Amino acid sequence: RTRTSFTAEQLYRLEMEFQRCQYVVGRERTELARQLNLSETQVKVWFQNRRTKQKK
């Protein structure tokens, strides 16, 4: 599997969503992935990694 390189715009949007809600599921995840031109899996994993980073 190749590592995803997020654009600055994608990271900004993901961070904004994370500040709003640390868990994104269902339709929200589908819509966010579509808007950012990413897969739902990429969005899901980004949120998982971001929550892990916050715990440290």
Rank of each mutant, 00 (worst) to 15 (best):
R1Y: 14
R1I: 13
T2Q: 14
T2K: 08
R3L: 14
R3Y: 14
R3G: 15
R3C: 15
R3K: 15
T4R: 05
T4I: 08
T4V: 10
S5N: 15
S5L: 09
S5R: 03
S5D: 15
F6S: 02
F6R: 02
F6C: 03
T7R: 04
T7A: 05
T7P: 02
T7D: 12
A8P: 11
A8I: 05
E9H: 04
E9I: 04
E9K: 04
Q10S: 02
Q10D: 03
Q10C: 08
L11E: 15
L11W: 04
L11S: 13
Y12H: 10
Y12I: 08
Y12W: 12
E15R: 01
E15A: 01
E15C: 01
M16H: 04
M16G: 10
E17W: 05
E17N: 04
F18Y: 10
F18H: 00
Q19R: 06
Q19W: 08
Q19G: 10
C21Y: 05
Q22A: 12
Y23P: 01
Y23R: 10
V24L: 13
V24P: 09
V25Q: 14
V25G: 12
V25A: 13
G26V: 03
G26M: 05
G26A: 09
R27L: 11
R27H: 07
R27F: 09
R27S: 15
R27N: 14
E28N: 04
E28P: 09
E28K: 01
T30A: 10
T30F: 03
T30S: 10
E31T: 07
L32P: 02
L32S: 00
L32G: 00
L32R: 01
A33H: 00
L36R: 01
N37C: 12
L38D: 01
S39N: 13
E40L: 02
E40M: 01
E40P: 06
T41D: 14
T41C: 15
V43M: 01
V43N: 02
V43I: 09
V43D: 02
K44G: 11
K44Y: 07
K44H: 07
V45I: 06
V45R: 09
V45C: 13
V45P: 03
W46M: 00
F47Q: 01
Q48I: 07
N49Q: 12
N49Y: 03
N49L: 11
N49M: 04
R50V: 00
R51A: 06
R51C: 11
T52V: 12
Q54W: 08
Q54C: 07
K55S: 11
K56R: 10
K56Y: 12
K56M: 09
